[in-house]
Design a protein around this nucleic acid. Structure first.
Length: 783
DNA sequence: GTGTAATGCTATTGG
DNA sequence: AGCATTACAC
């Protein structure tokens, strides 16, 4: 790979070799941005720059990993391993661990995720007697978060007359106090939330000149990807670090800025030149990814935005097919039509499952898509949503690990002090919390040295608390002697979590047990790196539980590589599709109030962000885009009617192919179409839903509330007499019968046990494998 | 203190 | 529709 420079076009090459001084690369969608970044770093290494002197900030850790691998191939050595590369959060978490003590934090500080944060806010609100209907935890969190991302400390917040007035007007005068208490509580718990990682990095660089100096000289070359999505806090960090060398290269596309909602400031890229008058700007405008239709159509959309950097994205690729627009009458039908279209394209163009992506605005839209794909027997993977590490059982076990590493971690302690149940209930916990607050210390310290505190606890409770402390202490002493797996496994056993889950024989309990096993397997893999690395180098990686926890703290769903078969259709929100590309892209739910979101309609800036989001969605596609919308959709259990999105009209109509009259689309039965395919589909016979929601009369704009009806059904379903009626369907199930389950799809009955109404069936599902289901709960259909 | 049933709240987007 | 919190019975 010596001749890497020859693989670049003119501008790309200039952007790669111009390594000195401030550089901004404005990279249109699909213009080979990743390639330029990769080659630029490779070029730095080739021309003698030490890997230790390069800092590269990427949008995901996965992107960093992949880039490192490619760089390694180009420079032909393992030198790339020494690059500092990762997300803002992971890189600065690493630095904060090194420097933590200067800020009064332990170096093994816990990183609170959104759940921990919200839970702590709720606790504080309750303690302060604030009504959580006025002080909604989510809103409070956002307010604190954006303050931090604007580098406003709680002290500054409370001193700022304008802010205090705003809060008074919003009937939340105590918000500053909540912010203060929240920060103090985190500090006492040895914990930082996501925003603290950036905020505290700023404190570090501001208050400790020697530290700033150290990292300024360490990072002589700084690269920032997706610069359009950085917030003020990140902006200041970059600016400070780059101040000494000014070898700063930012890459971005203002047209793809989609994270304003979490503080990203598009002005960071629009105003970059003001900070660096000597700035060299390179514009990558040739799109290598998409067809002319897609490129031109996307341009026609983004033209509706006002504020942008001038650029002209073009392509010399094929013209390509027009963008199909599909109208359906319900969300389920939309799913069916997408699944059907994917099936058809696979047949006609010899495409693979992994060539397809279904993109939506909100996670809730995935369900209709999942159901339809499952019915068609098309494998898929959902990104985002409920990730592995967010599952209850996983979080429970991780809380034990967290508390073992950092005893002051309040959220972890509260989660497990009585799980599995050990007789330490709410009233005890409350007494502990009060004592901790009064003495400005952590709950752990109160439990461990209760002498002199008026706790008012029974002797029996004391014993239980001491047992708990002893248990955690016994784990702690092994932190330095055992690897992550050995200790992790022992904690899973000694804590009683494994036993607790093992006793639960319900399908859900079994699944939870399996998840714990999966976590432990992951830890085994992690720990085994030691053996693998020993053979290759003399460097021993840290395989302690502490290291494992630091490794996973900032993982996201997109960072996980799927272990099993990767040939799957990808389902994700448009936000998580950033930076990805697929031959065939379905953008679904193009309806007013959904996309653009209802919440964005009141301000021009928000609407423009939605439009950029649409632009991002369109430009993910290489060959074909299909847009779809539905005229009705369920929301909060109610059927609402929908209008097509304004964004469809914003696409220059010469690139659009409005599908055939609705009559062809109304049917959800694809049997006719299928008979046209010569075989090959017998196995996955498509089964239409019994009764699809059919279009309602056009007259009524809004369907009368269905709420009562839904309520009635729910309560009735719990009534025995109705169970019997539902049970009728399945109570005579026999082995070998085919059934369909709402979640697991189609399967064959293997074994029946128990007597009505408590029958259980072992069913082998095509996609989900063998499951034991209780018939009166499982909604099964015989097919 | 523990476990279950009823209630009620909520859904942009994410590190 | 699903989930978390709350209310209430043991």
């Amino acid at each position: 790979m010596e001749n890497y420079l020859e693989q670049l076009n003119g501008v790309q090459r200039e952007a790669v070799v111009h390594t000195k001084g401030p550089v901004m690369i404005v990279a249109g969608a699909g213009s080979g941005k990743t390639r330029v970044l990769t080659y630029r770093i490779a070029h730095l290494l080739k021309t003698g720059v030490d890997a230790f002197n390069i800092l590269s900030l990427t949008f995901t850790n996965k992107a960093a990993r992949e880039m490192k691998e490619r760089i390694e191939k180009i420079v032909g050595s393992s030198e790339a391993r020494n690059l500092w590369m990762g997300t803002f959060h992971s890189v600065f978490a690493k630095i904060l661990r090194i420097e933590a003590e200067r800020l009064g934090y332990p170096s093994n500080f816990t990183i609170y995720d959104t759940d921990d944060t919200k839970s702590l806010i709720k606790t504080i609100l309750k303690e302060q007697g604030l009504d959580d209907k006025i002080y909604k935890p989510g809103v409070v969190y956002n307010r604190i978060s954006s303050a931090k991302n604007s580098l406003i400390s709680w002290q500054a917040y409370k001193q700022n007359a304008e802010i205090m007035e705003e809060d008074r007007m919003a009937a939340k005068p105590k918000l500053g106090l909540v912010y203060e208490l929240y920060q103090k509580r985190c500090f006492n718990s040895g914990a930082m939330d996501f925003d603290d990682l950036l905020f505290n990095t700023n404190v570090l660089l501001r208050d400790f000149p020697e530290v700033l100096n150290k990292y300024q000289h360490k990072f002589k070359y700084i690269l920032v990807d997706e610069y359009q999505d950085t917030n003020f806090s990140q902006y200041v960090i970059v600016k400070k670090l780059a101040a000494a060398s000014e070898n700063i290269c930012v890459v971005g596309d203002d047209a793809q800025s989609i994270y304003a909602f979490r503080g990203a400031n598009i002005q960071n890229i629009l105003n970059f030149k003001k900070d660096y008058p000597d700035l060299q700007v390179f514009k990558l405008e040739q799109n290598y990814r998409s067809t002319q239709v897609i490129v031109n159509a996307s341009n026609s959309v983004i033209r509706n935005n006002k504020d942008q950097l001038q650029k002209d994205v073009w392509t010399s690729n094929d013209v390509g097919d027009k963008i199909k627009v599909i109208k359906t009458y319900s969300d389920n039908e939309e799913g069916n039509s997408v699944a059907h279209s994917i099936f058809e394209t696979k047949m006609n163009e010899q495409a693979h499952n992994h060539d397809f992506a279904i993109l939506y605005r909100t996670n809730a839209q995935s369900r209709a898509m999942e159901e339809a794909l499952r019915k068609m027997g098309i494998p898929y993977r959902i990104y985002g949503g409920l990730s592995f590490y967010k599952r209850k059982e996983i979080k429970d076990l991780l809380a034990y690990y967290r508390l073992t590493i950092n005893h002051n971690d309040e959220e972890a302690l509260k989660r497990i002090i009585n799980y599995p149940a050990r007789g330490i209930g709410n009233s005890t916990l409350e007494k502990l919390v009060v004592a901790a607050a009064e003495n400005n210390t952590s709950i752990w310290n109160v439990i461990e040295s209760p002498n002199g505190l008026q706790l008012n606890l029974s002797a029996a409770t004391y014993t239980k608390l001491q047992d708990f402390v002893m248990m955690i202490r016994s784990f702690e002493v092994q932190l330095t002697t055992q690897n992550a797996f050995t200790l992790g496994n022992q904690i899973a056993i000694s804590s009683g979590i494994l036993r607790e889950l093992y006793t639960d024989k319900s399908p859900e309990g079994v699944a939870r047990h399996e998840n714990i096993q999966e976590l432990l397997n992951g830890m085994k893999e992690f720990s085994d790196r030691e053996l693998a690395a020993e053979l290759l180098t003399d460097q021993k990686p840290d395989v302690s539980l502490t290291a494992f926890m630091q490794d996973i703290a900032l993982l996201t769903d997109s960072d996980e590589s799927d272990k099993d078969d990767t040939n799957k259709v990808s389902l994700m929100t448009i936000h998580s599709a950033k930076g990805l590309e697929f031959p065939y892209v379905h953008i679904v739910g193009l309806e007013e109030n959904l996309f653009p979101s209802q919440l964005s309609l009141s301000s021009r800036d928000d609407l423009e962000e939605e439009r950029r989001l649409f632009y991002v969605a369109l430009t993910r596609a290489e060959k074909k885009v299909t847009l779809s919308y539905s005229t009705s959709r369920y929301k909060w259990g109610n059927l609402i009617s929908c209008e097509p999105s304004r964004f469809i009209e914003e696409v220059d109509s010469k690139y659009l192919d409005y599908n055939e009259p609705a009559s062809q689309q109304v049917s959800t039965n694809f049997d006719d179409e299928r008979s046209n395919y010569n075989g090959g589909f017998v196995k996955n016979k498509f089964v239409p839903r019994q009764k699809e929601i059919v279009a309602k009369p056009a007259a009524a704009p809004l369907v009368p509330p269905r709420k009562n009806l839904v309520r009635m059904n729910t309560s009735l379903a719990k009534n025995n007499s109705v169970t019997e009626i539902i049970g009728d369907d399945t109570k005579n199930l026999q082995p070998e019968m085919m059934v369909e389950h709402g979640r697991f799809g189609k399967g064959v009955v293997k074994k029946m046990e128990g007597v009505f109404p408590n029958q259980k069936a072992t069913i082998h599902f095509e996609s989900a494998g063998e499951k034991l289901l209780i018939l009166k709960f499982a909604k099964l259909k015989i097919i």
